[in-house]
Design a binder for these strands. Structure first.
Lengths: 216, 216
DNA sequence: CCTACCGATCGGTAGG
DNA sequence: CCTACCGATCGGTAGG
């Protein structure tokens, strides 16, 4: 058998993913060179290539590990909600808070996921999209539970995407160290969305009044 | 004096900006070459450089012309609201609909503005940011008018940014030609936001309970 | 407005 | 014969 990898291998690899996520988030995937990634990690470029096969693998690892953490988070909160017998409203509220916190702890990874997903290969992108769909579906089920009429109108997912829009966009304007923290904003987002959901007129939730227009 | 420019100069320039916006939106600014832009426009690379000085100017023109149109839109809707004596709620509702429509008509330009702003030079970025701040301030005034307590808590702008989050994010998941159009979503966004705003508990709007933490 | 190039830098890998 | 790297340079392509 081959000799085992050095004990610091996993740590070094984690450091590289974190530094690459930082650079990709600030400059974009295409706007960042492997030389910059290597320099940020304090290693030579050949050393960097010891830890990752190529630039695409770096992007794929950042996206896949991030979406995997989000999927786990959905499960953790669902287990809590089950144990505490929370209703759908409280469950959704807690899930929103958990996601804002998770995004705040992985801002760079999250920006890379949302902006550089297009640079993934088709196989990797499909894997990431599958994970994202699962997360969205978990939120959408809780939205449907509060507005069963929204599900009938197939609006649970669009409404969920509006919620994700508020959360995802926060990281473009909310500066760490500023007057408001993510923890300050999270309950505001939850109340605004859940309150707005309850206030939507039922008529609004039936877009099928408009016949589907043919695909072009 | 030099010979006047050909009559098609302005048209060709507009075509170039539109094609460049399309490519930048799909591949990112850094991920798009000037060769690709030239090919998409059906001209040689030297011909492309007849219409734009360099790649940065192309980006700056796309962003600055887009934000200028949005600023005009704020004015047009304000004039209408004045003429029709709309209250703040109706004014905001109409402004949201107008912005969703404007974004739908300039999806590529809007994505470039939101994602590639970081690649602007500092002078151009400052000009764009000034325009964005003016647009946000116009929305924030209408938000304040409906929740005067939000203004006191300095939350009018954060709440406005949540609204922009919903709208901006729409263009990442709403596919043209799909089941739902932007026109379908616009009133939903307006009702969700305005309804959620009204439903927010007053206690939520006083974050000054938390003393400001020092800048780091 | 073309072909033909430039200085530099890209992602990735050679030998030692 | 392995690993964990180094200085130098590969073939191609970027913006201009």
């Amino acid at each position: 058998m081959a000799r085992p990898r050095s004990s610091g291998y996993g740590d070094q690899r984690e450091l590289i993913l974190a530094q690459a996520a930082d650079l990709f988030a600030r400059q974009g995937y295409a706007g960042t060179s492997m030389n910059e990634v290597a320099a940020a990690c304090g290693v030579s470029k050949p050393a960097l290539y010891h830890y990752v096969r190529d630039k695409h693998e770096l992007l794929a690892l950042i996206c896949e590990e991030h979406i995997a953490r989000l999927r786990e988070l959905v499960q953790v909160v669902a287990t809590q909600a089950q144990a505490e017998a929370l209703d759908a409203r409280s469950h959704l509220h807690r899930l929103i808070l958990a996601f804002v916190e998770a995004y705040a702890d992985a801002q760079h990874e999250h920006r890379v996921l949302t902006e550089d997903e297009r640079h993934l290969g088709s196989a990797e992108r499909e894997r990431v999209l599958t994970g994202q769909r699962e997360v969205v579906a978990a939120f959408a089920r809780l939205v449907s539970a509060q507005r069963p009429d929204a599900l009938a109108g197939d609006l649970a997912k669009p409404l969920t995407m509006l919620l994700f829009g508020m959360i995802n966009w926060m990281f473009t304007w909310l500066r760490p160290g500023g007057r408001l923290s993510h923890a300050d904003m999270a309950p505001l987002v939850a109340e605004l969305f859940i309150g707005g959901l309850a206030a939507l007129p039922s008529a609004q939730l039936s877009p099928n009044d408009n016949p589907r227009r043919p695909q072009t």
